[in-house]
Amino acid sequence: MTMMKCWLAAALALTVAGCAPRSDDRDDLSRAASKELAVTPVAARPRIAILGDSLTAGLGLPKAAAYPSLLQERVDEDGLGFEIVNAGVSGDTSAGGLARLDWALDGDVRILIVALGGNDGLRGLPAEELQHNLAQIIERAQARGITVIVAGMEAPPNYGRDYIVSFHKVYPALAAKYHLAIVPFLLQGVAGHDNLNQRDGIHPTAAGARIVADTVWAVLRPLAESRRRPPT
């Protein structure tokens, strides 16, 4: 499922083995035929921010192939006028997301998709900690009048039933408590399928990212339509 190992490798590379330059050249994996995200100035377009980890950042993919860029295409096709802000940071946990919330909410953000938790799970951090951090993110966004969507994560089976269950419960509980729209599992239909994941078995390929975009789009589209105009 998530991104821990890569970040870990990268983080460790900083210290121990050194980011040997030659390993750099591997990561333009995908020749995805997707269009590049236009570099728009920080203009008056309303925004949808996605606060996430390496799945959102598109680790191992060109940025244009990551699912937020694909969502931007859908938004543009439907003429919804939103700018999608990719606030994904590889290796980030829910605690990291909370710490950089303000940066991510810069500008006229109307919808916030919270896609965090994968790294919490991979590092075996307590589920209560995850729930607590996500709750704060939601509360602070809602306080600014932002519509929040929560995208669920699962801990992989090797973490044992107890942990998986406690982890699994977090997202529906938050959705219920804060009346949120929910993407039950961000990697639905992707996780565990070899052909949709990169070699690390964690991060989706370009094809996998398209499925993720579909999954999110199904939940996002109605809300995006309703939030085209700022609430009066």
């Binding site: 990561d27 950042a57 940025k63």
Partner: peptide, 17 residues
């Protein structure tokens, strides 16, 4: 000039720490 051009350069377009 463009992100596209950067990407054509290969790994320069990757995420750096």
């Amino acid at each position: 000039e463009t992100v596209e051009a950067v990407r054509a350069r290969g790994s320069l377009a990757r995420e750096y720490t």
